[in-house]
Design a protein around this nucleic acid. Structure first.
Length: 823
RNA sequence: GCCGGAGUGGCGGAAUUGGCAGACGCACAGGACUUAAAAUCCUGCGAUCCUUACAGAUCGUACCGGUUCGAUCCCGGUCUCCGGCACCA
């Protein structure tokens, strides 16, 4: 160890040491309690950014601390390697996507290794490799065989820039989540995963996820969007047809004064064909289809619509109500038609006002400011039923239940639940993804490829036309295939899978990454699953985290895994920002991890990123703050260097004598306690580090006093290195070796703090008068309540303060404070 | 519009169960060491008032109010910012 802190040399040395000694290799060990730490695996863009550094530094502290605390820790890393950038690079530069991706992986892996993360690299996986996507395809077939994958034609989200369809979850504010291009509609036949079958389960089971941030659970709840109500049948007057509508407000049935169909509703054309209304209605329908989702779904847009010439019968009143078509009604929610209750629904109110339809109130209120017979806007609060026959006078909330019973008895409707969640569209018209292992046969329909023929390899002889059809169609070898059922010539599916499928089960493959017989061995997943601590950005709150939960639940039902939920605890780390803005090339405020590592070393980078903010919050990158972390590591290094001889010569046991001895030991054990608590469960690395800083400051002071005990110095220095090591492992290994150890500090047992050391002989007692701090007195900590009060009351300054006043009450918190209430 | 979350010094943040507001760090200022600088070490650092000084007083956790001996923390209301959803019947 040099006199000066040479981070470059030290970091290199220990990275080689860990690699040569297989320090982070993990195998199943039934005798040891396991702990699975997982950070969301990266897309191999080629460059590590600060968000990665933050994500993986957090995970590494947890993994290292848990290892030292005696757990058998699984801490793997891999690559979410399929996806658009590789293919776009191929179109632009003519590089083969696989080569581009694999070289990026190499580059990023080197960068990750310079950070000193404790990954078991033997478990590395890359989703673009045939040994991974083979099992992706196998899993697809399991979903298909269990009725959870199907193909249907539907208007789908289409990104004209990415030239592919998108799942609902990938459309943000009406635009493509990746490239921000406004999303259009296209009618295509596509593969879907039946995530809606699991809507209720995914919703219910959120309640069991105590280790998840509330925010994420609420976002998922909203996304699933459960509504409880009833389906009600309306007969269409003068026809043999009827229409069912979903409503959450069966109590307002008597107030229905119109029926409104979505423009796409199949009955619309049927009803108007051959009538005088055909021309105007069909023109409206055509116009609506051109509108983009964004245009159509703005709430402040004026309502539009056309009358169809037909009426349907309000089943409660028997009265005819007109049927309209309007684009505020969505085809893919409920039944694609809604009953119009203008008095109690704002949208219906606007529609009725515009088309001069009847507004019949059926819920009244005591509120004197609202006259339900002369409404300025819809009244949607609680109230008393009116104009509703036998239900008049009841509370409307209670009426909901009564009316559902009533319509069920009459056979005109039934209780019903609707979800906003839609099935997951998983086809992509792109090359760089796992081929969907399905073959279309004219006789047998869609048939899965046989297991022994997996993987269905991505062909190399393709043209990247960028035209919006899967490039696989251009392969001369790929498309034609024999039907696995009847042997007749068929065609392979040419679309590839959404890459979110790859990431929906990678945590299972990490348990058994090299298995060539199965996707994963159940015994192994039974040992390692669930992921005890999952860490990643909150931007995946709905997408990846919902899909993975769906996969796990479905695989559990298929008997492939044993638990319904994959991630026991979730930590969503905040963004790294600079100057108040997200780091981005266009703003020019990007700080590259590489530069920081070269200038200060990765230990400094890790320390700063963990110290500057609690993990869930945004982290403001401050160059001066990095300097500070670097300064601290130098300070620790100098301290250890200076005290090494004393530490080596010191006896193993000692007896604290002086108050300084007790004070420094109190600081030491407080630091051990704080770091233990803050790295397991609470995850407040910033305060853990500040406790270590206090310890360092304490040792600096203690070593200067005349009769400093060398045994205590040794105890402090050794524990300091051990508890700092999860944060800054390289420098700690170096110091650990220097003070005379020949094994890695990573293999040291995590220290336990001594409760007794935290108890002080004397404590500072706060004396308040009427709740205001007036005096601080030192007292023996073992005084009882009466003695506390007595000591306080006898103090000169307190006597002076309360003199001549009437003492009403004295409140005492032993060991902390005394509050004297006077008048 | 609906649903969440947050608001504390010049800055990042701390206060874990209702009990000393501002730990730890950054920035800044003064000093020591040095021919000098860097590095390092020491001291100060919420506001206002008062005092020659030592010290002291009052206010202060977005704003208004409440509960309590005592509120950054609990309750009611207001404002601002951030995030999610949004014509979902």
């Amino acid at each position: 160890m040099n006199e000066r802190y040479n981070f470059a040399e030290i970091e290199k040395k220990w990275q080689i040491y860990w690699e040569d000694n297989d320090s982070f290799k993990t195998v199943e060990d039934p005798d040891k309690e396991k702990y699975y730490v997982l950070e969301m695996f990266p897309y191999p863009s080629g460059k590590l950014h600060m968000g990665h550094v933050r994500n993986y530094s957090i995970g590494d502290v947890i993994a290292r601390q848990k290892h030292m605390a005696g757990y058998n820790v699984l801490h793997p890393m891999g690559w979410d390697a399929f996806g658009l950038p590789a293919e776009n690079a191929a179109i632009k530069n003519g590089v083969e996507p696989s080569l581009w991706t694999l070289s990026n992986i190499e580059e990023m892996k080197t960068q990750l290794k310079t950070m000193g993360f404790s990954y078991d690299w033997d478990r590395e996986i890359a989703s673009c490799k045939p040994d991974y996507y083979k099992w992706m395809q196998w899993l697809f077939i399991q979903f298909f065989n269990n009725g959870l994958a199907y193909k249907k034609e539907n208007p789908v989200n289409w990104c004209s820039s990415c030239k592919t369809v998108l799942a609902n979850e990938q459309v943000v504010d009406g635009a493509c989540e990746r490239c921000k291009t406004p999303v259009g509609k296209k009618k295509l036949s596509q593969w879907y995963f039946k995530i809606t079958d699991y809507a209720e389960e995914l919703l219910e089971s959120l309640n069991t996820l105590d280790g998840w941030p509330n925010k994420v659970k609420i976002m998922q709840r909203n996304w699933i969007g459960k509504s409880v109500g009833a389906d009600v049948n309306f007969d269409i007057y003068n026809t043999d047809k009827n229409i069912s509508v979903f409503t959450t407000r069966p109590d307002t049935l008597f107030g229905v004064t119109s029926m409104v169909f979505a423009p796409e509703h199949p009955l619309v054309e049927e009803l108007v064909t051959g009538t005088e209304y055909e021309a105007t209605v069909m023109e409206y329908v055509k116009k609506a289809q051109i509108l983009s989702d964004v245009e159509r779904s703005t709430t402040d847009r004026e309502k539009t619509g056309v009358f169809t010439g037909h009426y349907c019968v309000n089943p409660m009143t028997g009265k005819n109500v007109p049927i309209y078509v309007s684009d505020y009604v969505l085809m893919d929610y409920g039944t694609g038609a809604v009953m119009g209750v203008p008095a109690h629904d704002q949208r219906d109110f606007e529609f009725a006002t515009k088309f001069r339809l009847d507004i019949i109130p059926v819920v009244d209120t005591d509120n004197p400011e609202i006259d339900v017979n002369n409404l300025k806007e819809a009244f949607d609060a609680e109230g008393t039923m009116i104009n509703s026959g036998k239900f008049n006078g009841m509370n409307n909330k209670e009426t909901i239940e009564e009316i559902i019973k009533d319509i069920e008895e009459k056979g005109i409707g039934k209780r019903s639940v609707n979800y906003r969640l839609r099935d997951w569209l998983i086809s992509r018209q792109r090359y760089w993804g796992a081929p969907i292992p399905m073959i279309y046969c004219e006789d047998c329909g869609w048939v899965p490829e046989e297991e022994e023929n997996l993987p269905v390899m991505l062909p190399k002889d393709v043209e990247f036309t960028g035209k919006g059809e899967s490039p696989l169609v251009t392969s001369k070898t790929f498309v034609k295939a024999k039907c696995p059922k009847c042997g007749k010539q068929g065609n392979r599916e040419i679309d590839t899978m959404d890459t979110f499928l790859d990431s929906s089960w990678y945590f299972l493959r990490f348990c058994d990454p090299q298995n060539s017989e199965k996707a994963f061995d159940k015994e192994k997943t039974d040992y390692w699953m669930n992921v005890d601590q999952y860490i990643g950005g909150v931007e995946h709150a709905i997408l990846h985290l919902l899909y993975s939960r769906f996969f796990q639940a479905a695989l559990c039902d298929m008997g492939l895994v044993s638990t319904k939920e994959p991630f026991t605890n979730l930590l969503t780390q905040g963004m790294v920002i600079k100057d108040g803005k997200k780091m981005s090339k266009s703003i020019g405020n990007v700080v590259s991890p590489e530069k920081i590592i070269n200038k200060y070393g990765s230990d400094t980078a890790r320390l700063f990123i963990l110290f500057a903010a609690p993990p869930e919050k945004e982290l403001d990158w401050l160059d001066a703050g990095v300097e500070g972390s670097y300064r601290f590591l130098n300070r620790v290094y100098r301290l250890v260097y200076e005290l090494t001889d004393k530490v080596k010569a010191a006896p193993d046991s000692y007896k604290p004598v002086t108050s300084s001895d007790k004070e420094i030991l109190c600081i030491l054990h407080n630091a051990i306690k704080k770091v233990t608590d803050d790295t397991s469960g609470r995850f407040q690395f910033n305060t853990a580090i500040s406790a270590i800083m206090e310890l360092v400051n304490g040792i600096y002071k203690y070593k200067e006093i005349e009769n400093a005990n060398e045994g205590i110095i040794k105890d402090c220095i050794e524990n300091l290195i051990v508890i700092l090591s999860p944060f800054t492992p390289h420098i700690c290994e170096e110091m650990w070796q220097h003070i005379g150890h020949d094994s890695s500090v990573y293999n040291m047992a995590w220290p336990e703090y001594d409760k007794d050391a935290l108890i002080k002989d004397t404590v500072e007692i706060v004396v308040q008068v009427n709740g205001k701090v007036k005096e601080k007195l030192n007292m023996a900590s073992d005084l009882n309540k009466d003695e506390f009060e007595k000591t306080a009351m006898e103090s000169e300054s307190i006597k002076a303060l309360v003199e001549g006043l009437n003492i009403v009450k004295i409140i005492t918190v032993p060991g902390k404070l005394i509050n004297i209430v006077v008048k």
